[in-house]
Simulated scan of single mutants.
Amino acid sequence: MEIQIKNLNFQFKNNIIFQNLNYTFQENKIYVLVGPSGVGKSTFLDLLTKSLTPSQGEVIYHDFSAQEVMTVFQNNQLFPWLKVIDALRLPLKIQKVAKEQQITKVKTLLEDLNLTPLAEQKVATLSGGQAQRVAIGQGLVVKPSFLCLDEPTSSLDMESKEEIQRLILQEQKKHGNTLFIVTHDIEEAAFLGDEILLIRNQQLHPLTNPTKTLRERRDSLDFYEFCIQLRKEVRRR
């Protein structure tokens, strides 16, 4: 399963965002898109998920359908009056999954996300990190082939941020799906990404993450040296 970007152009008014863009996203990888504000990160996410139509070219889903692409947005878009268990069941209800299967899937997910003690609690009463876990759970519960996360930790404190990042890696390893993450956080990009993508001159520039296989990366000098390199690349025009 792949997503192929083929000869894609996108222009907003007189501003050319992407020009003759070609790229292929492969399965079972984590891609992280970084760049300064206004460079087109969220626009690219909308193009990738077909929420936006390119001016020219196409986005092709190979061997899967649009229903297998899920997006978790920055503001998590949770209904505050729902209980956690009902919030996680909601995507399954929309897809008309049988009630027995809903219960089984959500019970497993509650355990995976350490949300079981909060199952009957209303979303409005959750902390930021807890709510973000629920939002990611809504994306995972239908077992998407591609899961897109838009600034998944931007509003969280450092401890909650690192917890969500570990959770993202844990769930991706378990399900083997492809993740596409938009972030402005350099350390987050270096921690999560197999491949890091920079937007420059209306193109995507890939950078392979040399630290991804290191154990205890946050305690590694190599990790922070890569963060410095990546920060310089982002700033370079």
Score class of each variant (00 low, 15 high):
residue 1 M to I: 06
residue 1 M to L: 12
residue 3 I to M: 15
residue 4 Q to W: 09
residue 6 K to W: 01
residue 11 Q to C: 05
residue 11 Q to I: 13
residue 13 K to N: 10
residue 13 K to S: 11
residue 13 K to L: 09
residue 17 I to D: 09
residue 21 L to S: 03
residue 21 L to D: 11
residue 22 N to L: 11
residue 23 Y to A: 01
residue 25 F to R: 13
residue 27 E to T: 10
residue 30 I to Y: 13
residue 30 I to V: 09
residue 34 V to A: 11
residue 36 P to T: 07
residue 38 G to C: 14
residue 38 G to F: 15
residue 40 G to D: 03
residue 41 K to P: 04
residue 43 T to V: 07
residue 47 L to F: 13
residue 50 K to Q: 12
residue 51 S to Q: 14
residue 52 L to A: 12
residue 52 L to Y: 13
residue 54 P to T: 09
residue 54 P to C: 15
residue 55 S to Q: 12
residue 56 Q to E: 14
residue 57 G to P: 11
residue 58 E to Q: 14
residue 60 I to G: 08
residue 63 D to N: 15
residue 64 F to A: 07
residue 64 F to L: 10
residue 65 S to G: 15
residue 68 E to Y: 08
residue 69 V to T: 09
residue 69 V to L: 05
residue 72 V to E: 06
residue 74 Q to R: 07
residue 75 N to A: 05
residue 77 Q to S: 14
residue 78 L to A: 07
residue 79 F to H: 13
residue 79 F to I: 12
residue 80 P to L: 06
residue 84 V to N: 07
residue 85 I to F: 02
residue 86 D to M: 01
residue 88 L to R: 05
residue 93 K to N: 11
residue 94 I to T: 12
residue 97 V to E: 15
residue 97 V to L: 13
residue 99 K to C: 06
residue 100 E to R: 13
residue 100 E to M: 06
residue 101 Q to D: 09
residue 102 Q to V: 01
residue 102 Q to Y: 04
residue 104 T to R: 15
residue 106 V to R: 12
residue 107 K to F: 02
residue 109 L to Q: 15
residue 109 L to T: 03
residue 110 L to E: 06
residue 112 D to E: 14
residue 117 P to R: 07
residue 117 P to Q: 08
residue 118 L to Q: 15
residue 119 A to R: 12
residue 121 Q to W: 01
residue 122 K to P: 04
residue 122 K to V: 04
residue 123 V to D: 09
residue 125 T to R: 15
residue 126 L to Q: 12
residue 131 A to N: 09
residue 133 R to C: 04
residue 135 A to D: 07
residue 136 I to Y: 12
residue 137 G to Y: 05
residue 138 Q to R: 14
residue 139 G to V: 00
residue 140 L to K: 14
residue 141 V to T: 08
residue 142 V to L: 15
residue 144 P to H: 10
residue 145 S to Q: 15
residue 148 C to F: 04
residue 148 C to N: 04
residue 154 S to V: 00
residue 155 S to T: 01
residue 156 L to H: 05
residue 156 L to Q: 08
residue 156 L to Y: 05
residue 170 Q to V: 06
residue 171 E to W: 05
residue 172 Q to L: 08
residue 173 K to F: 02
residue 181 I to V: 04
residue 182 V to W: 10
residue 183 T to Q: 11
residue 183 T to F: 07
residue 185 D to T: 00
residue 186 I to L: 07
residue 187 E to V: 06
residue 187 E to G: 07
residue 192 L to F: 02
residue 192 L to W: 04
residue 193 G to A: 03
residue 193 G to V: 03
residue 194 D to T: 02
residue 197 L to W: 11
residue 198 L to P: 10
residue 199 I to G: 03
residue 201 N to L: 00
residue 203 Q to Y: 00
residue 203 Q to N: 03
residue 204 L to F: 10
residue 208 T to D: 12
residue 209 N to T: 08
residue 209 N to A: 01
residue 210 P to M: 05
residue 211 T to I: 02
residue 213 T to E: 10
residue 214 L to I: 08
residue 215 R to V: 04
residue 215 R to G: 12
residue 216 E to G: 13
residue 217 R to W: 03
residue 218 R to L: 10
residue 219 D to C: 03
residue 221 L to F: 06
residue 224 Y to V: 04
residue 224 Y to R: 05
residue 227 C to W: 05
residue 228 I to P: 13
residue 229 Q to Y: 15
residue 230 L to Q: 03
residue 232 K to M: 09
residue 234 V to W: 00
residue 235 R to C: 14
